[in-house]
Design a protein around this nucleic acid. Structure first.
Lengths: 175, 175
DNA sequence: CCACGGTGCTTGCAGTTGCAAACGCACTGG
DNA sequence: CCAGTGCGTTTGCAACTGCAAGCACCGTGG
């Protein structure tokens, strides 16, 4: 997998941006680049430098690594084993929790792949939640196959009052 | 702004090159860039684009990631947890799925912190990306508070015929 | 009706990247 | 002593990035 699809980087950015439901100008401002330039990047008319790419990733609140991989600037490595390896190596969860996480992750992967390779845009399009902590829509969207975190958490939380009712803020990290 | 900002990247490249005992021209040829340009990069007179950086990394046979980190284009990995970092960096799951995974993981962490942290969570401390053969005991002991993977997976399987269609009713869980 | 704010896109233009050609230097050997 | 070969560096120049300004379009509403 060399890098024949350099143009896909723009599509990827636009996809992520529309998923986050922010305008081109908003992302441009958040990323610290000009709107016209971002427009050209998204349409593949310009090849953004690494610095710009990094800022865009920050503006999108996504991993810069994912962008670099999309841009073909980083070997595809083994993204799946990254998550799996990290889960396997984690020392703060129990064996059962580990298995659950692995199963969930693999289920997601399978779900995305089974959707449609041709229109894989759909796999990423049904992701409603914006990466930014605006209003975290906790309600279950009927058009989304993936349930809300609360729904999933309700299954394996032994004490509902501690987790679901208590606090589940997923944005507490990010330093 | 001339270039006082990116000094280390060039030094780093030159360091790696001299360590590899190859000449500037050799690396330039291997990386597919011109010798004068590589010279300027190494001395910090030019700020190489991501593409060039990637090619140089290939020519040096080193990880492009290391170069990006040196260039300050990628945050120095490991913000909080390897699992969270890997999940955030994963490009094959949707935003929503990402949030779900993060929520689940943090829920596990919190759950463990509330109870006994070191009961059966001493398994993988040295398994840093070690592809150990996964022993999947799908048996699920009922004495554990964590539900079986099947229960959890039943929640977010989009297949309606599989379990629950879209909506979640974790009533199947019984002591 | 036309002003207003919103979206994304097109157009010159300064500043930069990245390269081909040429330079200065050290070493070899005819 | 001067050709030949290696090194890293300097010098113009085409090509590009990235931006400010302006364009065309759409929906509001005064």
């Amino acid at each position: 997998m060399a890098l024949p699809k350099v143009g896909s980087i723009g599509e990827y950015i636009r996809e992520q941006r529309t998923q986050a439901k922010i305008s081109l100008r908003q992302l441009a401002a958040a990323a610290g680049v000009s709107n016209p330039y971002l427009s050209q990047i998204e349409r593949g008319l310009r090849k953004p430098s690494a610095e710009i790419l990094n800022q865009i990733a920050k503006g999108l609140r996504i991993s810069a690594q994912a962008l670099y991989v999309q841009a073909g600037l980083i070997e595809d490595r083994e993204p799946d084993s990254d998550v799996l390896a990290a889960v396997k190596a984690d020392e703060f969860i129990t064996e059962r929790q580990r298995q659950v996480l692995i199963d969930i992750y693999e289920s997601f992967r399978k779900e995305n792949r089974a959707g449609a390779p041709d229109e894989n845009a759909q796999t990423a399009k049904n992701a409603h939640s914006a990466p930014e902590p605006r209003e975290r829509d906790a309600g279950s969207s009927p058009d989304d196959e993936t349930p809300s975190p609360e729904e999933v958490l309700a299954v394996f939380t032994p004490d509902p009052a501690s987790s679901v009712n208590g606090h589940v803020t997923p944005e507490t990290r990010e330093g």
